[in-house]
Nucleic acid binder design. Sequence first.
DNA 1: TATTGCCGGGGTCAATCCAT
DNA 2: ATGGATTGACCCCGGCAATA
Length: 217
Amino acid sequence: ADIYHLTASQLENLVVAPREPRSERAVPRKLGKVGRNVVEQIERSKRNDLSRLIYALGIRHVGEKAGATLARYLRTMQAVLDSPVEKLQSVPDIGPVVAASIRLFADEPRNRELVARLADAGVNMTSQAPEPVPESSEHEGPLAGKAFVLTGTLASMSREEAKAALERLGARVTASVSKKTDYLVAGSDAGSKLEKARQLGIETLDEDAFRALIMRE
DNA sequence: TATTGCCGGGGTCAATCCAT
DNA sequence: ATGGATTGACCCCGGCAATA
């Protein structure tokens, strides 16, 4: 939370030594413009969605995915901290171990103080993510229920953009190939995932095919 | 122009979840 | 109860944008 109280001038004047001097002449220097940029980005980070905050807290067993799920279902940081384990476990993909880990974190006064200080600094504590849909209309979008895995480098967009595009269309995007995977999107320099997809006979899309798909839908 | 280190990406493996 | 699917925690690397 202290990060949110840093000022631009503090960082600008901070002197840093080269971490791993690759030349003899490498010399300590002031952060200068870097300092200003850092403060700017810290400021921007206050507006991140709750899912990012939950992820960033470093709660054991809670990573990017679980953070997003918790944010979607519980909506506020307060709810995450105050929900009894049973309620936490009622969230999809949250089992006893993860729920217990969250409670352990939230029951530690030091952690509650941390969150309070972050809130005080103006860090967003709520989620803008769409509310979980009721069972009946669970799957929406043209790619509803389809599981995608991304591998390799796409020339026309970042991985994050590709992921967001797919999720907008209702698809699931996961990290590793399994036989439940419907499509593998392979950019250049694809590695072992492409190999695995071939073995499992999973349909592979190259970048052009992928773009065609998301543009069409 | 030289230098730094951020960024995006790849991979492994154990832990965990949950459908069967 | 079990095993397959998936996630989380780490670790590694090179290109290149930003900066001095």
